[in-house]
Design a protein around this nucleic acid. Structure first.
Lengths: 365, 365
DNA sequence: ATTGGGAATGTAAGCGCATACAGTAGACGT
DNA sequence: ACGTCTACTGTATGCGCTTACATTCCCAAT
């Protein structure tokens, strides 16, 4: 059952392969009667054009790429449950109080936005998730298949980016700019954190907020911390006089940090976290420890993930438009494809400060 | 800046294109010294092989496809925020009490699992989300680019499936089998719901649970309802004597249903919902209305989404392994690619009944 | 009936790579 | 020195499709 080709269809319909191709690509160039004949042959033969051949001939693939760094905790069961015609029935009692798998909303959202935007412009989307080993193979592989590629900050080494970008346009998502070579899409980390901090300073008279930082190599965190400092400086407070707690963006890690603060007994008036996960981790500890939020301690996050809306108290945070990030990345790429020589694009998406109970107290209060 | 090709590399390294190709595909067939020379040319020219050409010549693409029906609420702002070098600073007060966007965990998870499994076997993954208009174009397009394709139940009309499957193997995810033509991967909907229902009947002495159904054309819901009925029948209860409430799997819709029940004043002892979203919608209404869960009414869901673990009370539900669904689908496809003539695969993944507070009462109680 | 001209179709040349097959250079044996 | 292998490398073809260009149609206008 070899797959049918243009030749088969052409023969079957009694036309040349060019006509078959036209029927599929520019139907109006073909007389209605022949078109109908060809289409019926297509149907009859189960013909599906080979995108490989088409891309090769047309010099474009119609696919955009998206590359993520690996984040999902390598679930590496070699053999997934499968092949067993099992019907399950395992009843588990009141389980999983902790977090099972922090659903990686961030990537999911970016992906969704990307897919959507790519599709709107007639492109398919190919995703790659950088697994630990060697991104080179994968990135190269994807790069060979697409017309353009968006890459999450720091998921790909610079030299690889340079290499790949000689073939196709590359758009960087989040993180810092990389020289002036690439198009770049990010959110207003600094401005958002500054606005939030200013709010705490002005409205709540906080004088010595403590920043709970993410990994020291996170450019996003660096930008956020910068906003934090700017707000302090603008209020006449010396940022360097305040301690900074270093976390790793994870919830469990933040719990440890909070636990330490509680036992040490020196809780600041406000804990400003570099992301939501950490803020949630802190809430996990503070509540049970008898520390009231926000009465005793104000806690804020950054990202605007769903879980922060479901926590109690609900988390004050800065929401970044993750899906829009993906969309903007795709649009930047498409724009670059159309105008290869335009100057580098820099899109910076606005964020929203969401004031909720973890800083404001009961709703309506 | 035309992209480099094998020819360029060959010329630059002083070898033939065959050797260049060998260096990339079967390095051991080339003398170490020439290999090094070629590789350095590759680097110098920024050569990235064209997957289109390779796929065409090799007669396989190395890509697997995954097709979803459209679920995300068409966020159709024609122009996403973008291009404006805006720095945002908009402060919003205590917002969004309702749900902002039900994160579509289900697809996200299936996608994640698929990507993972595909990658493990050296394949890239291409995703397509069926947008309202006409799936044919998109499915055909994807089918032309991949070696095999997994499709979510009912996202593609039968004739299209038949057509496409003449070119590549197709695996169906979830839903009912389609004749005996396709490989099929699903979860134990019936068994899971039956186990859950039996638990309610046996352990909680519920005698007349009411089923809150999904859309009548949902095969998943049908399977679940069947399990519900089986449990009743096995307990000597006539399923047909009990009313069934019809929802559409959405949270808002379920709220309306619950509201009606509350005002009518005839709440059953237990509401068994076809999915988690609806169960959550019911919880949304019951709590504020003064109805105690589970003391007055037991509420259960199906799916095991994250939000059900974060609700209060936490939701008793049946967890289906969504990521594994994706993985299993990919494996089925790969298996089919290796053994085209093997009999149709049917994988049925086990589920887990998770008993939580919405049926059991306070933890530890 | 002729002719001009646009519309419809056919012809043929790649697109960039993999690979069967042919060729070439040493290495080794006699 | 010459034949024989073995290990590499080059030649040439085709994968299935698009598309510029050439050719043929068809019909209105003369």
């Amino acid at each position: 059952m070899k797959a049918a080709t243009v030749y088969d269809v052409a023969a079957h319909a009694g036309v040349s392969i060019a006509t078959v191709s036209r029927v599929l690509r520019r139907p109006d160039d073909v007389r209605a009667s022949t078109r109908a004949r060809v289409l019926s042959s297509v149907r009859e033969l189960g013909y599906v054009p080979s995108a490989s051949a088409r891309s090769l001939a047309a010099r474009r693939t119609g696919v955009l790429g998206l590359f993520f760094p690996s984040i999902d905790d390598e679930d590496d069961r070699a053999e997934a449950v499968f092949e067993q015609d099992t019907l399950a029935r395992i009843v588990v009692d009141i389980p999983d109080t902790g977090e099972v798998r922090p659903p990686n909303l961030y990537f999911d959202e970016v992906l969704r936005g990307s897919e959507r935007e790519a599709w709107r412009h007639g492109f398919a989307l190919m995703v790659g998730v950088g697994r630990g080993s060697d991104p080179a193979t994968m990135v190269n592989d994807i790069a060979g298949r697409v017309d353009g590629m968006a890459v999450l900050a720091r998921s790909v080494p610079d030299d690889l980016l340079d290499h790949v970008s000689r073939r196709i346009p590359v758009v960087l998502i989040a993180g810092p700019r990389r020289g002036d070579d690439f198009d770049h899409v990010s959110v207003s980390n600094t401005e958002g954190m500054r606005a939030l901090t200013e709010h705490l300073l002005d409205r709540h008279r906080v004088t010595a907020p403590v920043y709970v930082a993410g990994p020291s190599d996170s450019p996003d965190d660096a930008e956020r911390y910068l906003g934090f400092r700017q707000a302090l400086a603008a209020a006449g407070i010396d940022p360097d006089a305040l301690p900074v707690l270093r976390g790793n963006f994870s919830r469990v890690d933040a719990r440890a940090i909070a636990a330490e603060l509680v036992t040490a007994g020196d809780l600041p008036r406000a804990l400003v976290c570099g992301n939501d996960q950490m803020a949630l981790g802190i809430l996990d500890v503070l509540g049970p420890a008898g520390v009231r939020v926000p009465d005793d301690v104000i806690v804020t996050g950054f990202d605007g993930i769903e879980a922060g809306r479901l926590s109690s108290p609900r988390l004050t945070t800065v929401h970044q438009p993750m899906a829009d990030l993906g969309r903007a990345a795709m649009r930047a790429m498409l724009s670059r494809l159309e105008h290869p020589d335009q100057p580098p694009i820099t899109a910076r998406l606005p964020v929203k400060v969401l004031l909720r109970e973890s800083s404001e107290g009961a709703p309506g209060a």
